[in-house]
Nucleic acid binder design. Structure first.
Lengths: 210, 210
DNA sequence: TAAAGTTCTTAACCCAAATCAATATTTTTC
DNA sequence: GAAAAATATTGATTTGGGTTAAGAACTTTA
């Protein structure tokens, strides 16, 4: 009964609402209603681009279902900077926040359903719903912390350590994306990752033998 | 006359106030007064540690005068992650936001004067002054954008490009810190930076000759 | 200004990953 | 289920930065 009361009108918004409530338990039903007004559901087929270099990124998109990759084009090659699956936000925040053309791409790796909020609507919410600023602050702080982690890992860990972390932190990644994309994400060539894997694997075998 | 009206009581807070007003033009005198209550001026001698690994970072410190380096200790060597001079914030935000022990150090490279706000005071301000959340959001967003830039540069530019960027973006750095620290910041050894410099230099010379 | 302490440069050698290239394996498509 | 496409592996060669070591050029201090 209680749960029904908290369910958003549109069932497709339930995950996003739960996410907001988690970050901001004081969020009122009334304020949620204001927010709900501006949400849009959108779907992307596998392979479709959600963010494109050169275009201003106008939405933050919360993934209900699916998987995307974020990448830059560097000398004609794609350099993957991250993957994003269910219950996470897709956005080129650099473009979104600065209102400048994106220099990244986001592409659906699977058919993907998202809940969008546009930049203008978000600013409207910040004005109408003061506590949204607190939510916005917490989301920005969270993004910053994530970026710190990534940076630290990139700079101070060996590639083997980072490879192990990837497969232990996101075991689903290995099932859902080809290895050469993980190589790109780690910042090495597919050949190098293949060699590292065989090194790691052989070391494990010899440990068992000894 | 107008300017006098806007001057904070304590002249040592003027830069910080200007910074706040820049990010949040709607900041009222009244709300500034609340903020001013909790500010503390503090000085560090060259060489002193402002943030120490293992201790929770309890303050954000706005630099009035001076220069600091931020670094990690990695296998007994320091890995510099950034420099910070006048009109910027010093903080291990990871530690500050998560309330966990810092894994970074911040050390004064020159005698340094800062204006501090403690974590608890900041939370108090967020409660008492709702618009502070907007300021906090903007600061967090700004930090995130900076981190994006750094990350992108680290991942997608050659060391020569990054070296050139450092000297063109922060020419004062070369005057104020020794080259081996810049090497550490770029993520290479002092020897490698020395070689790169001579490479860059020789290329320039030969261009002139041709 | 001499001596000591820092910082910077150069050289020789080493190693991990990039590149280039060929082949093997898996997945998709018809 | 065969052919085509995509992905993964392995080998040979190159390359850029690490390491070690020595000496040169600056700074500081007395």
């Amino acid at each position: 009964m209680l749960q029904t009361f908290f369910m958003p009108e549109n069932e497709q918004f339930q995950y996003l609402k739960a996410y907001y409530m988690h970050l901001l338990p004081s969020l009122t039903e009334e304020n949620w209603k204001v927010t709900e007004q501006v949400l849009k559901v959108r779907t992307f087929k596998k392979g479709e681009l959600i963010v494109k270099e050169g275009q201003v990124c106008n939405n933050v998109s919360f993934i209900n279902k699916g998987l995307v990759k974020m990448y830059f084009m560097v000398n004609g090659k794609e350099k993957i900077i991250g993957f994003c699956n269910e219950l996470n936000y897709i956005c080129d925040y650099q473009s979104f926040l600065t209102r400048k053309p994106a220099n990244s791409y986001v592409q659906a790796l699977e058919n993907t359903e998202v809940v969008e909020t546009s930049f203008d609507d978000l600013q409207m919410i910040y004005e109408k719903v003061p506590e949204a600023n607190k939510l916005g602050r917490k989301i920005a702080e969270g993004l910053f912390l994530e970026m710190c982690e990534a940076n630290h890992s990139q700079a101070n860990e060996t590639i083997i350590q980072r490879y192990r972390k990837v497969i232990s932190d996101h075991p689903w990644l290995m099932q859902r994306v080809p290895q050469y994309m993980i190589a790109s994400y780690l910042g090495i060539t597919p050949e190098a990752l293949s060699r590292i894997k065989s090194r790691v694997h052989n070391k494990k075998k010899s440990l068992v033998v000894i």
